[in-house]
Design a protein around this nucleic acid. Sequence first.
DNA 1: TTCGTTGCAAACATTTTGCAGTTTC
DNA 2: GAAACTGCAAAATGTTTGCAACGAA
Lengths: 134, 134
Amino acid sequence: MARKNFSKKREAIYEAICSTKSHPSAEWVYNTLKPEYPDLSLGTVYRNMNGFKDDGMILSVGSVNGQERFDGNTKPHSHFICNRCGDVIDIENVPYNMQADEVVRNVSNCDIDYHLTFFYGICGKCKNIEEDNN
Amino acid sequence: MARKNFSKKREAIYEAICSTKSHPSAEWVYNTLKPEYPDLSLGTVYRNMNGFKDDGMILSVGSVNGQERFDGNTKPHSHFICNRCGDVIDIENVPYNMQADEVVRNVSNCDIDYHLTFFYGICGKCKNIEEDNN
DNA sequence: TTCGTTGCAAACATTTTGCAGTTTC
DNA sequence: GAAACTGCAAAATGTTTGCAACGAA
């Protein structure tokens, strides 16, 4: 996909993704921008987000509860995904293990570009709700 | 979900998932079993696979091209996903890094149950196709 | 003016669900 | 025989797409 013009809406969609750490879905972006852009359409959001992804401007962090989630932060970092509420949280403190890529390269006859790590469990918010109910 | 009876079809579905290293989708399981069980329905496959997942008998390895993929091997291991053909391949040679869970536990106030690592790149098969075309 | 971009709505693909009938224990 | 399970088909959900109108260079 060749994106030539940079429309106001396209800019707003990209800004919205980059301005949050919530790893938004297309629906989140749509709902967030709808008040300011009442004639925004969901198709446009999908089209642009796919374009950003193809261009490497944003990353997919996989599907949570059936919705694909994205990250405007393209620097390598890990994620935590809450098995209860589905929140996706950045983990910045685990250094990227380049050696792992090398190991896999040597044993798998695949070209390894990069790896992603996802931690799973219960987030702080959900833990608190649990405690409040006891 | 409480599964009490263990029907023939349920058994066949579980067997099918465990008997392959292809990390199958629901559709794959359905198509594989359909010849032997002509009255099998896709709904049953989905229902059972979700049940297995809830019970921890199988693991989801995320969505590839819009289809959720599963793994009957629940021992901790990593995966390689081909960015070209979508194949999911087991990586058994990268030891599970328990220390990483500990680090994240300490910095995030989340309960960490486990982590998954996905390597991305081009698989051997796709590399060969590429070379053949040169 | 020319193309890229958008809104809209229809089309699609995957997954879920309600219900009546069937199987398992 | 009761409870669990299934087939079927409809519905729900998330995403893509065709096309005419719109907007940016």
